[in-house]
Design a protein around this nucleic acid. Structure first.
Lengths: 192, 192
DNA sequence: GCTGCAAGCAAGTGATCACTTGCTCACCAG
DNA sequence: CTGGTGAGCAAGTGATCACTTGCTTGCAGC
């Protein structure tokens, strides 16, 4: 089964770099160090191969926020850093897939993507905090969640192509976003 | 000159939908209602045509913030709504161009894109406000700018493909973002 | 040693691509 | 009436694409 995974990895990589049309079976086979015919014997067609490869490369084990928060600031920081890194590592795939979303909507399962799941996780976490009175009651948590996720997302997929806009390190930037976010939702520090 | 502009418009449109490889000269000519050969007579090659078309479709007249602010909240809202709308209208082009950025870095002048220019404008505006004491002095305005621009950007390019994440209207969402942003930077209301 | 399977190799097929050539047609100025 | 100009049309060229066929090779189990 090692060969199959090598092909899938190569396919996802080539797709991320050149898109569906640019990911020719020749290039994928060459990248995987495999004869072109082997692709067709294993996956039938280029479409099926890429579909499976992207599905596989896009799936992720989400980094969850704790059900019972002790130190929100620390928990949010670790969560934000982990989520940012995950999106940053997949930035090539994300950018390519988003660019081809209208033409091939089914190739990347956006509605169960990491960004959406993480957003739901964050919103539930913030609602718990709000219920405990640690966040001002008049805050629209859906907008706050979307804002914070959008900030992390935009940073992760733009950082490498707009270096002048992101001079600080990823971790430092995430810390600054978190600082601003905490002020926006009037997050109360833990009282110990 | 009407025909030339029609070709450029069709080229930008087809590129936005299908990317560089998918934007065949046949499709562009068909969309423009023009013989395929006319493209080559006018622009020499597909590459030159698309280059000019994207350059043209990507250029924009920036909506500037006032040099002397009277009502920051209102000024920021109008600015944010205008910038969001501009990015939203160009979302197809932006997504496609970002997806092909590594393969064809020169086709879309990112470093002078609307997002970057608007970000610089916003940062200068906020610095003026901070100098006037209307924004807390310990706020990192670069991070704040990046956060707000990132929020607007992520909303504009994700809204149509993640409707579950953006149930509210664009204008309502921008208002909510602005509300949170004002809290984050501790923006003081105008005192009149 | 034999069988069966997984993979490689050589060659080719029809489609599509960007781009070219040679010609025609309509229009407009002098 | 004539010459030039800008556009269309028909046809074709070489390259590349996804995918197929027929055959060979290496290897594991019996």
């Amino acid at each position: 089964m090692e060969l199959r995974d090598r092909i899938l990895g190569a396919a996802a990589q080539v797709y991320s770099e050149t898109g569906f049309r640019g990911a020719t079976t020749r290039r994928i086979a060459e990248r995987a160090g495999v004869n072109e015919i082997t692709l067709f014997r294993h996956f039938g067609s280029k479409t099926r191969l890429l579909h499976e490869a992207i599905q596989c490369a896009g799936s992720t084990t989400p980094y969850a926020l704790p059900a019972c928060s002790i130190n929100p600031r620390t928990e949010l920081r670790e969560w934000a850093v982990a989520n940012h890194r995950e999106m940053f590592d997949r930035r090539f795939l994300i950018r390519t897939a988003m660019g081809e979303m209208e033409e091939r909507p089914d190739i990347f399962p956006m509605d169960r993507s990491q960004a959406v799941c993480a957003g739901l996780d964050l919103k539930a976490y913030l609602e718990r905090l709000q219920h405990e009175g640690r966040i001002a009651g008049d805050i629209d948590l859906r907008a706050a969640t979307t804002m914070f996720m959008g900030t992390l997302f935009a940073d992760a997929i733009s950082r490498d192509i707009l270096p002048s806009m992101y001079p600080d390190s990823a971790e430092a930037s995430v810390n600054q976003y978190l600082e601003l976010f905490a002020r926006a939702i009037a997050l109360k520090e833990y009282s110990s």
